[in-house]
Simulated scan of single mutants.
Amino acid sequence: MTRDELKFDYFDWMYGLVCDTKYPKKLSYRKLLNFLHNMDFTYQLTMDSNRFEDGIELRYRFGYENGYDCSVIANYLDDSPCSVLEMLIALSIRLEEHIMDDPEIGDRTGQWFWNMITNLGLGSMDDRKFNENRVEDIVTRFLERQYEPDGQGGLFTLENCHYDLRKVEIWYQACWYLDSIT
């Protein structure tokens, strides 16, 4: 297997985690997710390095679930920083598996992912409506924490928030968001 083939399989695997059979076949978000995968996840707050590391670990989860040796993943996929897509999917998995797991409801990884995408303002960016400049502006605003203090325009919006979410690590934002919806 070549590096390009493995990278394609990895992207396809990630896409399948959040764009599975629940979505109409005619509706594709490949352009958006590919763009997010080609944009590095950078962070302003030190503790958000954990989200970066979770994104890197997603590569090894892919390897484990698909029978690839860790050395193959290290040599072929670990040649770049964590992408925005990897961070978002890894965070969605962590929220589902570590906090919100409910076997009666089933896996909601995609739901958490699309909640964040929608809150960012990217929910309408399917392949037919994809606007690269707009997506880049929106993601840059998120990465530079230029969204509203209540999180609007970031990953999570909290009504009656007593904190400026621009100064709070992503994990706390996520936990407070989940508390607000349960």
Rank of each mutant, 00 (worst) to 15 (best):
N34Y: 02
D20G: 10
G110P: 14
N133R: 06
E53S: 00
G110M: 04
D54W: 11
M39N: 03
T2P: 07
R166L: 14
R145K: 00
C82R: 03
P149S: 05
G154F: 06
I105L: 15
V139E: 06
E65D: 01
E57Q: 15
N131G: 04
G55I: 15
V18N: 01
T42K: 08
H37F: 04
F130H: 01
Y163M: 10
D150L: 00
N133K: 06
G67D: 13
L143F: 06
R141G: 08
W171R: 08
R134L: 10
Q44M: 10
V72G: 02
L158V: 12
Y10S: 01
W13Q: 15
D164T: 15
M47S: 11
T21P: 03
Q111W: 13
R30E: 03
L120G: 09
W176T: 10
D78V: 03
L17V: 03
I56P: 02
A74S: 11
T182E: 08
Q173P: 07
M116H: 05
E57G: 03
I105D: 15
H162I: 12
S124W: 14
L95E: 11
I181A: 10
T140Y: 02
E148C: 04
K7Q: 10
C82Y: 10
S180E: 12
G106N: 04
P24F: 09
I170K: 00
M14L: 11
E104P: 03
Y15G: 13
D137I: 09
T118E: 13
G153P: 05
C70R: 03
D137A: 09
S92N: 08
P81M: 03
E57P: 03
R3T: 03
N133M: 05
G63N: 07
G110A: 04
G153T: 04
R128S: 15
L155G: 01
F130M: 10
I73S: 09
